[in-house]
Nucleic acid binder design. Structure first.
Lengths: 150, 150
DNA sequence: GCAGTTCGCTTCAAATTTGAACGGCCGACT
DNA sequence: AGTCGGCCGTTCAAATTTGAAGCGAACTGC
């Protein structure tokens, strides 16, 4: 094993900032969504992704990949959302094993209701804190990072 | 309530990138630490912060703040680490309510053992993916974000 | 066709996280 | 001194997350 290349000052600052910002922003949004919409962030993300999908429906596995959560975790969350009537399940015609989760009208309504507050919180926590230049670099950089790990 | 200011393209890319990168990096590091050192990321962070503190000790509440976790969550993690012998507790002389968590020699050894692999993973997942310019901006930007929310 | 493998989703138990009490203690103010 | 609001860390139950099976169904090569 080669010598460890420790992080220099800038690298360390980037890393610490990344970890801190991740946790803080996640925590803040979790809070905001719970308070204003009664949803957890994972749940909100489910609604968002479904709402953007054709027919407002998506296969479980694909949804799990997009949400970056485990499959069993998604099963659980979909069950919760189903109980709440925001989401439904339908089996896949071409593959008996497959399950589609779809957004109900009620779910769509809840999402529309929740979105403005969520966006405002995202702005306050992240977007509006940065200038245009920073946003551009951030988008590019984090896009690379995510793309590479995906 | 004012009209909602939705996110434009760059803002949305920054936001999606942020969420995706947060989750993916967290997941990756969690994995790496568990595999190579038998520690969870929260646990590793506890060791790191304690190792950097005077006397390798810190008050519970301060530690919780730095780790950006709930106090009850910290109590739990410290209990786990204590069982494993990596950390100890000592009560505070000047305040009977207070508790110091401190890093044992064993904990220090485990940390030293785990650090190189962890740094390598951090480089691979985040740092080495970006160029110097991006790192600088990232450090500055995320520092602002974290500072503002803290 | 048909074994052998992989895939899609769920189930399960175990580990973790959370927020709301709780029990004591500190400190300021009277 | 005496009291009251807050803080410190823990405990508790409930919710969530995880990875390891499990169950069928679909696909592969022979």
């Amino acid at each position: 094993m080669a010598e460890t290349r420790w992080l220099d000052e800038v690298e360390m600052a980037a890393w610490r900032g990344f970890v801190a910002a991740s946790n803080l922003v996640a925590r803040r949004l979790e809070q905001q969504l719970k308070d204003e919409a009664g949803l957890s962030h994972p749940q909100y993300e489910v609604l968002v992704h479904l709402s953007a999908a054709p027919e407002r429906a998506m296969r479980m596995t694909e949804l799990a990949d997009r949400l970056i959560t485990s499959k069993s975790g998604l099963t659980y969350q979909i069950a919760q959302l189903e109980k709440a009537g925001l989401v439904g399940r339908r089996s896949c015609a071409s593959d008996v094993r497959g399950v589609f989760a779809y957004l109900t009208d009620r779910g769509m309504a809840v999402l529309r209701e929740a979105a403005p507050g969520h966006v405002a919180a995202v702005r306050e926590a992240l977007i509006d804190v940065l200038d245009r230049e920073q946003l551009t670099v951030l988008a590019e950089a984090l896009g690379q990072v995510a793309g590479r790990l995906r």
